[in-house]
Amino acid sequence: MAHHAASAHNGHHAEMHEHHVMDVAVYWKVFLALMFFLILTVAAAIFDLQVIIQKATGLNIRGLNIMIMLTIAVIKATLVVMYFMHVKDGTRLTWIWAAAGFVWLLLMFAMIMSDYIARGEVEQAPPGWEQIH
């Protein structure tokens, strides 16, 4: 019984111990993906997708460019956290800690911005202001 429990314990830890030396190829692939997303970010900034989509479909999606750029930034950050910071092969406790900061940050953004918006302190830009530059 005691032996059994100990060996199960052992097995669990053995998985943890293998500090997973990642393949060199994995790091290079992640780096190339980061480069690709960097170029994509700049492309999303240079081409005014909001105007392009409005001309094509008549749909006016305000702040489309920054939404795309921030989505890409989140993907890039996830790649860095998972592969470069080894959270992918980390223990569950590491996962919780790695997520905690970002979750609390999002909570802070959401709560404070909902307060600002509810007070009407967020100025709504007049239609067409994007065209002035």
């Binding site: 920054i66 950050a77 956290v81």
Partner: peptide, 27 residues
């Protein structure tokens, strides 16, 4: 040290679009 360094990198990943790219840059 690596974890710290990658964190600094992540901060920049967010700062770059928020500061430099919201002004419709031209090539």
């Amino acid at each position: 040290v690596g974890l710290y360094w990658h964190f600094v990198d992540i901060v920049w990943i967010f700062l770059y679009p928020l500061l430099y790219l919201i002004g419709s840059p031209k090539l």
